[in-house]
């Protein structure tokens, strides 16, 4: 096994670079694909999610370091539950893991968020959903390093753009992760691509109906909710093509999105 930057490069990056995309992913369910939701936790008692969240951990500060313990805290904000509902709505057999980095005092400063990403990479979750970001420049370099590690470890990181006048990290990194912005599309399989933009993919993010803590549902708007749509699509792709590298996943998303855009232009998509 080759090592780059202290991390093992997965053997699958050395297999043949050719693969046929096909249409099998369209009917896949994300079976056997692990998806980490780095967020505010997940309400695992929600009827739609009950028994479907494979594991929950939460960040805790110990001697100025962030450590992760098994969690039964659920979700105090609703956001992680909403993201998990979107993912399982599209990829019902994906193995969703909750990595809670938001919600209790003192954790919202970016360190827990970075630690959560590192934890997810160490666990080798295949897809990592990051519907969060930071604008603090001091996190730029460590995040870049973590994303390179994820890339080399074969973990596909999907991040939400922040849609604010300031850049948010990591969504503005363009090489090693997949960044998503909301659109008014409604069909998750008909996501779009913004050619030449830093935030390349567009996915449903306006009035998305999804799970909410306490057993109910909410209609939500934000890039945060576009991001899990793409995370789920990647789970479908990985069920059908388990050996795809992050680079190949990006290429596959690009070619599907191009097809979607072409169909939209000719007026028969997004309906």
């Amino acid at each position: 096994m080759t090592t780059v930057g202290g991390d093992e490069v997965t053997s699958r990056s050395r297999r043949s670079t050719y693969f046929e995309l096909g249409n099998g992913w369209r009917t896949a369910a994300g079976r056997g694909v692990s998806v980490a939701v780095i967020d505010s936790g997940i309400d695992t008692s929600h009827p739609d999610l009950s028994g479907r969240i494979r594991g929950s951990v939460e960040a805790r500060m110990e001697n100025k370091k962030v450590v992760f313990d098994p969690s039964v805290a659920g979700d105090s904000a609703g956001h992680g539950t909403a993201c998990a509902g979107i993912i399982l709505g599209i990829a019902p057999e994906a193995e969703v893991y909750s990595v809670k980095v938001l919600g209790s005092g003192g954790l919202g400063d970016g360190h827990a968020f970075l630690a959560g990403l590192e934890y997810a990479i160490k666990q080798r979750y295949q897809v990592i959903n990051l519907s969060l970001g930071t604008t603090k420049p001091q996190f730029f370099a460590p995040l870049h390093d973590l994303l390179d590690r994820a890339y080399l470890a074969g973990c596909v990181v999907v991040a939400a753009a922040n849609n604010l006048p300031h850049p948010s990290f990591p969504s503005v990194f363009s090489s090693s992760l997949i960044s998503v912005i909301k659109s008014e599309q409604t069909d998750p399989r008909k996501f779009g691509f913004r050619y030449g933009e830093v935030i390349e993919l567009t996915a449903p993010g306006v009035n998305v109906r999804t799970t909410w803590p306490g057993g109910g549902y909410r209609n939500l708007t934000g890039n945060s909710f576009a991001c899990p749509h793409i995370a789920a699509i990647i789970a479908l792709l990985l069920e059908e093509h388990p050996d795809l590298t992050p680079f190949e996943v990006k290429s596959a998303l690009y070619s599907i999105a191009q097809e979607n855009e072409r169909a939209r232009e000719s007026g028969d998509a997004g309906k």
Partner: peptide
């Protein structure tokens, strides 16, 4: 309190969001 509710989430995550049907049970 930190991280609680929609405002708490927006503060700690830096992500804007909108909810069109805030329910009565929302803590």
């Amino acid at each position: 309190p930190a991280g609680k509710g929609i405002a708490g989430f927006v503060m700690s995550s830096g992500q804007p969001m909108a909810v069109s049907d805030v329910g009565v049970e929302e803590a």
